[in-house]
Design a protein around this nucleic acid. Structure first.
Lengths: 337, 337
DNA sequence: GTGAAAGCGCTAACAG
DNA sequence: CTGTTAGCGCTTTCAC
């Protein structure tokens, strides 16, 4: 297929290169009949502007990078990631940005990838998923001066823009719901404490207990890694402590835990009540339907994109902090429906 | 941070722009001491070449696009996609390509996205996931002359390069396994027939039955859409037909179906045996562990990337056809362990 | 082995 | 409203 240039179109339409450029970029000051004529030639010839040339001349690539520093396990197991990616991709389509994906799991990958994401002229900005590996990247990103936003709160966030949900408050709410409905031995399946998500959700749980004058029973706190299998194992570890309710830091872990409960011949919520976190499809499909905290994952992704575009267009100072709301969705698993 | 150019490095190192370019691109004919000197300056200054300028001058962007035309439901539910993406991303890292992601669900999205993926100078090549929407894109891609490879066989594949697994053979094998172990009423939960995957897997099932002299009982064939929920519903529809074994076209549907079996008070494999397809993590976690066809999803993604790079470097003619092997993994759910 | 010079295809002042 | 003119930062012949 032809490799037409602006010049060719200009010649065919009998105008100058600049005019064609103006038409293509929808600049206002072009006479209607000229615009028509140029458009027609463009349509007829199937001309597409060359992205690299445009980027070079305008210093704007209209590309955003999504960096996912992920241990393999949860990226595959947890529907959270596909949803987040979808939210981000959708927003990129909407704002006419192209999305690039940088997945990596190891330090080696990071060293290899960083030069690519920071090559000038490639990415207008970066969305970085928070996480242990990610935090090391933040410093590099800060000093590379490329606009970026973190999806989820990083541990060190001086001068860093991020989007997050109020995990403490949400977990507090979930735990309080169980307290208010008379449960007496409320356990939690927490996430690994190398992420702020886990730390915050654990904190919300603890705060709810102590605010209601309870003593914290360490045997009721077990750690998983956000996989279904880890929820299952965590519950097995929890059973001897005889909890009557469990707040799990993710739906997927709650589902694994409920599997362990059923296998032990107990019922949900009859013997043990459950509240999860996320409210993605699996939550509604489980048996019984899961009471959970709804995170606006899709909007969360979109908000990250919008914040990043704001950073690109308005400058990165001051850092933006966006906290999104969550909602307690009461279904059957907590026995209060 | 500084925005150094080749020119700056050249001046600092006391050489010409061309020499710096040669060093950066690892060309052979540069004197060792000069190379050293230049490298040192590059290191010291933290210089990164500008990607757009390089792309413009060399007509090579080192970017690959992954187009996922997906109905929302299965992209989220099925671990197949994250795995595929991971396989592709990993291979891109390895071959030093940057990966761009184009997700879309509707015709509108397609119209909006196509100009972006086909903008000259942006993508060196495209990986397209097969699927109903995708097939419309193939014609556009063919006439746009950009190298592309389809992940999964498309319905019309004249002149199209693709990577696929032998779904017919694999399903034949799965069904035959059930036949050989004495099951008499073998049902299938098929996929929607708008994809070759579904069609092929159904064909393998049918072929195994007829090759063994069986008559096909239409009441034993039910269609799902690769979601867990659809597997559940399909099984409910299947129960009155009293199957003693089920071949499901995906693990996720098998898991949904087994849930329906359990809920009906029946056991797996005691009352109904199961074989799935995929062998991704959920398969091994279910109760009981799922017998299934293992697809090399990760390698599949890598192979797609390698094929695409071959297309880019060696030309797109003739079209390449790669068929990958599968393997029957026998676990408990088929009762023959 | 190294440098000079000519683009790659587009944007964006600046004139007119 | 439209055309002219410089670049954007790099690669790549082609001389030397």
């Amino acid at each position: 297929m032809s490799s037409l240039t602006l010049e060719d179109i200009a010649r065919l339409a009998g105008v100058s290169r600049s005019t064609v450029s103006r038409v293509v970029n929808e600049h206002p000051h072009v006479r209607d009949d000229v615009r028509q004529r140029v458009w027609e030639v463009i349509q007829r010839t199937g001309y597409h502007p060359n992205a690299a040339a445009r980027t070079l001349a305008s210093q704007r690539s209209w590309m955003l990078g999504l960096v996912l520093p992920r241990s393999v396990s949860s990226f595959f197991t947890d529907p959270f990631f596909p949803h987040l990616v979808q939210g981000i991709a959708h927003a990129c389509n909407q704002y006419d940005y192209t999305l690039s994906l940088f997945l990596f799991a190891t330090k080696d990958d990071e060293d290899k990838i960083f030069p690519r994401i920071s090559r000038r002229g490639l990415m207008d900005g970066i969305i970085l998923q928070a996480g242990q590996l990610g935090d090391k990247l933040i410093d590099r990103l800060l000093s590379s001066n490329i606009p970026f936003v973190v999806a989820g709160r990083p541990f060190h966030c001086d001068g860093v823009s991020y989007v997050d949900v109020d995990n403490v408050r949400a977990s507090y709410r979930a735990t309080e719901h169980l307290i208010q409905h008379g449960y007496k031995r409320i356990a939690t399946i927490a996430g690994p404490d190398n992420s702020t998500v886990s730390v915050d959700r654990r904190e919300g749980y603890l705060k709810a207990l102590t605010d209601h004058g309870w003593l914290v029973d360490e045997s009721l706190i077990v750690e998983g890694d956000f996989t279904e299998a880890s929820g299952y194992r965590a519950m097995q570890a929890l059973l001897p402590a005889r909890p009557d309710a469990v707040f799990a830091a993710s739906d997927v872990m709650a589902i694994g835990a409920m599997r362990a409960v059923h296998q032990a011949g107990l019922t949900v919520p009859g013997d043990i009540a459950f509240v999860g976190f996320d409210d993605l499809p699996p939550a509604a499909h489980g048996t019984p339907h899961l009471t959970t905290i709804r995170q606006p994952v899709h909007k969360f992704g979109a908000k990250a994109v919008e914040t990043l575009i704001d950073l690109i267009e308005q400058g990165t100072q001051p850092a933006r902090r966006i906290i999104m709301d969550t909602e307690l969705i009461v279904r059957e698993s907590c026995g209060t429906h």
